[in-house]
Structures are given as structure tokens and as C-alpha cells.
Design a protein around this nucleic acid. Structure first.
Length: 436
RNA sequence: UCCUCGGUAGCUCAAUGGUAGAGCAUUCGGCUGUUAACCGAAGGGUUGUAGGUUCGAGUCCUACCCGAGGAGCCA
């Protein structure tokens, strides 16, 4: 009889078979003549049962005194068991300890409560814990669903550089890097300007990668390094951005609900909140948003950008995202197209997620006329030399085009119902935390 | 950068200006169905750092360091 090594997640289809499981000791409960080692292998957790009378004395004692997170390979028969968490159990026949964690230096993360500082210092180990594991599986699903959406809608993945010569927008702060021969380069805060070039080459493109913001933000929604997907479409306008953004969000949510129910349960996510997200999303102009805020007692004036408290006020009574468009041009980047009837209004749109997760998509239509773009560069006091290549895009077959960026971590935090984006990525980078 | 809160055992937290303690973890012992198992015992401390007030400071004062939450800015 051959012995098959299986993933714990597949235990249900091996009931009655003798199998091998390779993993780590998640938790252990023991009696005098019986013990229950719970083994995790990355795909799941299974409770094993070791009975003294059925095993060699030495093996039973070894298992009974095994330390948390020791690595081991167990073999035994799978059995359906209602009393076991997960519904299946493995009756241990043999076991091999790969590495025993010494009790003089035990695994630091116990099954009890820990503070966030301690957990973040041990992030490399914290990833093994149930909730963190579940959140990263949701992230995996979100990223896969995003790529599947674009790949099946005619978008070509064309990634953009991380070392860039200058600010894309001139608004947020950049991380400066020493390049060769006294040259300075900066870590990209967006791939958008390059996306405009690739869209003119391929029609519809997207880039997907890490971006960097040296903002001194210290909130539950900010990382200094985060992942952003940025589609860009030639021959497209503001309405196309709203349409694609809405479709993308709905596609990703349905995939998460389809494939990650168990993980959402581990995260204690109220899935009815996600199931309620349907088309059409709410739509309002910036003008209407200001009116709504004023009616709710805000002192906001037309012309200032919406802050986080404003976003929360606007979405507090909504069950799905809201698209707010036509912002004052003064609060948007230089490349935003302007409304024909109102040159003080930019054709930008932000998608604000419900439940306080804030802006998850920002984008809009770009300026495609050379003269207007030059004027806007000047108004933003940006050096023309750095943008010569970008201006070329307006000289050689310029067309109306549009695109947006979606932040992966905020989206995942929303899916998981997490109160901080730091748990949506394996090793978050924040203003005061760069280790491990 | 600013505002607020915090730092005591490996972890999570208690302790009226008056002998630094509990639970978990670790070690030893008990238990053949445990579900963050339970029961009994043991070891474990420069109270973030440096000053100051006081007969006496974990506790009060000052400065600094570290962390958390928020604001602005942003995805």
C-alpha cells in the first residue's frame, strides 16, 4: 500500500485512507493516556489523535511533550469526527519530528491575546496564525480576480518602472534613491504616466505593482509601500472609468465570496455587507457631495478636497460604494482633463467604499490636448524638461484617454472587514515600522 | 509635523505615594475525548531611559526614547 502525502484541506476526500501529513504543531492538548496534536500545513489545520496504548511508548511521550510550532510529519488514518474542529481527524500511527522547538526558547506567539506592537515585531511568525493566514488568502484571491478581470477584458499587462526620474504628480512626497554617478531617482508613487504611453501602444493596458509614498501618514489606511493596479484606456473618457471600475469591483467581490467563504468566516466578516454590493453604485458629483455634507452639518466649502471624516459622513448611510466625480481642478493633479462647460472642474472620479474603508479607486480622464497640458504644467510649477516624453504622447496621435488606480490593501481590508491595512500584506511598511 | 493615550515577568494586564501581583507561556506532577482543555506545584522583575520632588516613587514633576489611535495628505 502506497502512502500518499496529502494537503490537510483535502482530508475530506481521503476518509478511511492512511495518509501522510507534513506540517507544524499548531496546538496540543493532552491527557494521561491520550493527546490531541493539532497540525497545520498551510492548507488547513487537522486534529490528530495519539493514544498511548496504540503507540510505542517513546513516540507517545514525544508527541505528548511536543512544543508549539515544532515541525513534524505524521502518518495515520483519516476519519470523519464531529467532535474535531474541521470535522476530520487523523489517528496517529507513526510520526517523525523534523525539528523540535526547544522549550528554553519557546514559540513566542501563544494562543492567548497579544498586543499589536508585539505581533508586528513578530510578523514573520504571526503569518502562521489563523486570522493572518485567512487575510492573506483573501489578498491572493483579490489579486487573482483583478488580473483575471483585466486579462479577460482585452487589457494587456505592461508593467511600469519603480525607479523613476521625477514626480508623477508633484503633490505627494517621494522616496529618493541614490543612483549611479550622483544621479538621483525616486521610487514610483504611480505608474500612471507610463500607463498613458502603453495605452497608446496597446489600446488598453494595466500595470500592477508596488508603489511608494513618503507621506508621514499614520492612520489605519496608510502604508508607505503598497500595491496598486492601474488600468489605462485609449479612446476612453470619465464614463468609461466609472463603468470599468464598477465592473471590476463587482467581479472581485463575487470571486471572494465564491472562493473565500471559509476565510471570511475565520475573519468573522459579516458577508451580508459584501453581498449587498450590487450595481449600480451610488453616483454624485463633487457639488452634490458638498451639498450633502453641508446638510449633515459639515463646514466644508466648495474647493477643498474631501477629508476622511467627509468620506465617512457621505458613506455612513450607504450599502455600496459611491462614485464622486467632477472635483475642483485645483485639488487634482495637473494631467486631469477639465470639463468643457466648467474649466474649474476636473474630470476625475473617486470610488469611496462603504463601512469607512475610504477611497479605493481614484482616476479619471486625462488631458489630451498639448496646449492645455503645457498650461497645466506651468500652473503646477512643474519643469517641462522632465515631461518631454510625456508631451510626445500629445503630439503623435493624441486621443482622449482615461484610467484609474485601485489600492489593493484598502480593498482587501474592506473584503476582510479588517480595521487596519497592515494585516492585508505579509510585511507592511509603515512610517515608523520597517522591520521585519 | 501636530493632537490624544500608553510603556510593570516571555505575553496580556493589576497594584490608594508605603512588602511589585494574577492569568497565560515554560518546567515538574495528575487525567483515555480535549475544543484558546482542565487540576496541583515551581522558577521567572534594574517597573522604557535619565534626572528631580519625597522619610519613602511603578505611582508625582521635567526631558528624552519607543509604541498605538487620530488629523492633515492620500490608494
Amino acid at each position: 500500500m502506497s502512502l500518499e502525502r496529502i494537503a490537510i484541506s483535502q482530508a475530506g476526500s481521503h476518509v478511511g485512507a492512511t495518509v501522510e501529513i507534513a506540517g507544524w504543531l499548531y496546538n496540543l492538548r493532552s491527557g494521561g493516556k491520550i493527546c490531541f496534536p493539532q497540525v497545520r500545513d498551510g492548507s488547513g489545520i487537522i486534529q490528530c489523535v495519539a493514544v498511548k496504548s496504540a503507540l510505542p511508548e517513546e513516540l507517545f511521550e514525544t508527541l505528548k511533550h511536543l512544543t508549539q510550532e515544532s515541525s513534524l510529519i505524521v502518518r495515520g488514518k483519516i476519519r470523519a469526527e464531529a467532535r474535531a474542529p474541521g470535522g476530520f481527524e487523523l489517528d496517529v500511527e507513526t510520526a517523525q519530528i523534523v525539528q523540535r522547538v526547544p522549550e528554553s526558547d519557546p514559540y513566542p506567539i501563544t494562543p492567548k491575546e497579544h498586543g499589536i506592537d508585539f505581533l508586528m515585531d513578530h510578523r514573520h511568525l504571526w503569518l502562521r496564525s489563523r486570522r493572518q493566514h485567512a487575510a492573506l488568502l483573501v489578498r491572493h484571491e483579490v489579486i487573482k480576480a483583478i488580473r483575471d478581470y483585466f486579462d479577460s477584458h482585452g487589457f494587456i499587462l505592461v508593467d511600469t518602472p519603480i525607479f523613476t526620474p521625477a514626480a508623477c504628480e508633484g503633490t505627494t512626497t517621494l522616496f529618493e534613491v541614490d543612483y549611479f554617478e550622483d544621479e538621483k531617482v525616486y521610487l514610483a508613487q504611480s505608474g500612471q504616466l507610463y500607463g498613458e504611453a502603453t495605452a497608446a501602444a496597446f489600446g488598453k493596458t494595466y500595470c500592477f505593482g508596488p508603489v511608494f509614498r513618503a507621506e508621514k501618514s499614520k492612520t489605519r489606511r496608510h502604508l508607505t509601500e503598497f500595491w496598486m493596479v492601474e488600468p489605462e484606456m485609449a479612446y476612453a473618457d470619465l464614463e468609461d472609468v466609472k463603468h470599468v471600475g464598477e465592473e471590476l469591483i463587482l467581479h472581485v467581490i463575487s470571486r471572494v465570496l465564491e472562493n473565500r467563504r471559509e476565510d471570511l468566516k475565520v475573519l468573522e466578516r459579516d458577508v451580508s455587507k459584501l453581498e449587498a454590493v450590487k450595481a449600480p453604485f451610488h453616483r454624485m458629483t463633487y457639488d452634490q457631495a458638498v451639498e450633502k455634507l453641508k446638510s449633515k452639518g459639515s463646514e466644508i466649502q466648495w474647493g477643498s478636497d474631501l477629508g476622511n471624516t467627509d468620506e465617512t459622513l457621505i458613506t455612513e448611510d450607504l450599502d455600496r460604494p459611491v462614485m464622486i466625480d467632477r472635483y475642483p481642478a485645483a485639488v487634482k493633479a495637473f494631467y486631469f482633463a477639465l470639463a468643457e462647460d466648467r474649466p474649474d472642474v476636473a474630470l476625475g472620479v473617486d470610488f469611496i467604499a462603504p463601512e469607512g474603508y475610504g477611497e479605493i479607486i481614484g482616476g479619471g480622464q486625462r488631458i489630451h490636448e498639448l496646449d492645455l497640458l503645457l498650461k497645466r504644467l506651468e500652473e503646477h510649477k512643474l519643469p517641462r524638461e522632465a515631461f518631454e516624453w510625456y508631451l510626445d504622447l500629445r503630439k503623435y496621435g493624441s486621443v482622449p484617454h482615461a484610467g484609474f488606480g485601485m489600492g489593493v490593501e484598502r480593498f482587501v481590508a474592506w473584503m476582510c472587514g479588517l480595521d487596519h491595512v497592515r494585516e492585508t500584506t505579509a510585511f507592511p511598511r509603515m512610517i515608523y515600522r520597517t522591520k521585519p
